[in-house]
Design a protein around this nucleic acid. Sequence first.
DNA 1: TAGATTGTTAATCGATTAACAATC
DNA 2: TAGATTGTTAATCGATTAACAATC
Lengths: 223, 223
Amino acid sequence: MSEKEISKAVITRLPRYYRYLGELLEDGVERISSNDLSVRMKVTASQIRQDLNNFGGFGQQGYGYNVKYLYAEIGKILGIDRQHNIIIIGAGNLGQAIANYANFEKRGFLIKGMFDINPRLIGLVVRGIEIRSVDDLEQFVKDNDVQIAALTIPKTKAPEIADRLVKAGIKAIWNFAHTDLSVPEDVVVENVHLSESLMRLSYRVCSIQDSEEERNRQSEIME
Amino acid sequence: MSEKEISKAVITRLPRYYRYLGELLEDGVERISSNDLSVRMKVTASQIRQDLNNFGGFGQQGYGYNVKYLYAEIGKILGIDRQHNIIIIGAGNLGQAIANYANFEKRGFLIKGMFDINPRLIGLVVRGIEIRSVDDLEQFVKDNDVQIAALTIPKTKAPEIADRLVKAGIKAIWNFAHTDLSVPEDVVVENVHLSESLMRLSYRVCSIQDSEEERNRQSEIME
DNA sequence: TAGATTGTTAATCGATTAACAATC
DNA sequence: TAGATTGTTAATCGATTAACAATC
């Protein structure tokens, strides 16, 4: 019996639950009800219970959820109880920013290597991680059991590198290049399109401004 | 008559339309039907037509959409025909990565200044942008008509800086800190939670692996 | 036991897709 | 005119919220 498909919306919310539970844990909170959590997170308690029940009954009637237990369970669901070996392709600022973010390692994401085509970067060491030539990519992926590649390179180079990664047996691409990648269906692509994020922000700023101006115009007419 | 509310899902897709239309424009394509575009973008033609018709009738029966015109119109909708003044708070790798991404300026996002608390960074110049002390934040925002602040600082510092920005009159926060911010409702927060993105990726990798293992187990049983 | 709160079913709401008349 | 394709209405699908019996 293949487990029922979990909707994308639920998966998007899981890491946020995980973050809030982690904070509760740090604050020494032992248990929490879906209602209390819903107030903190500004979502409905119904949604929290529905979301969690996709994966099992983690709570207890009359008690709520044990924070430590639920935190661990969501961690398992997200797969951050396992080790993931990562490489970063593109050792520019963005690549280095990722390499320097220590918290990823706490969650089982181990950065095994960085790659670039710039000879001036090759050989440098960032946080103990050597920057290698992209020529050595395939061999390195095979030798180090690398599952995930972060792509922090210009969009022009991304499709070719993605193809090489897929052929080398990578399982997932964390894509920061401003383009869509086409990969076989058993390879995961998670896009982080920063320029699109900034445009959404722009839209929202402008639409607030516009509606304020509209309101002002309306009130002028009323006078 | 306040314009009808546009759903979040539509807004999320707009920048992607904009990107594809930009590419078509570069390739010299003059017109495109919703059907052709839907094939390229791997969405339904229905969805494209519904999405666009939230903002007006940009097409023509029997012809399709004029690429150049539609590109410009979506640009206007997204507000990237206007100028947005941005500051970056946190001049680490991530802040510098954003400062160095030239394409933002092409779309009207002008980086006016960078800020940090690290004395060793203050005074440095990145791509012509001086790194200033966070002490000067409020004055700078007022003097330079800054609307948007990118927050590339640790989560512990983010809420306090966000408060200061709001008081200084900022309109939007592009939040890279791993925490939620609470701001007045006329201030926009666009979150880029990279660690959550990586967890979603992890979930998807693991769920593919698990279902493959499940399949293997099933076929063993069948033998 | 009484009170609290879950897990789960049912009702509602919203988003996506299908269909087709309008029209270029 | 005939063919193509939009804009838009209607049908479907899925996600969210409400409600409540089960139960700790």
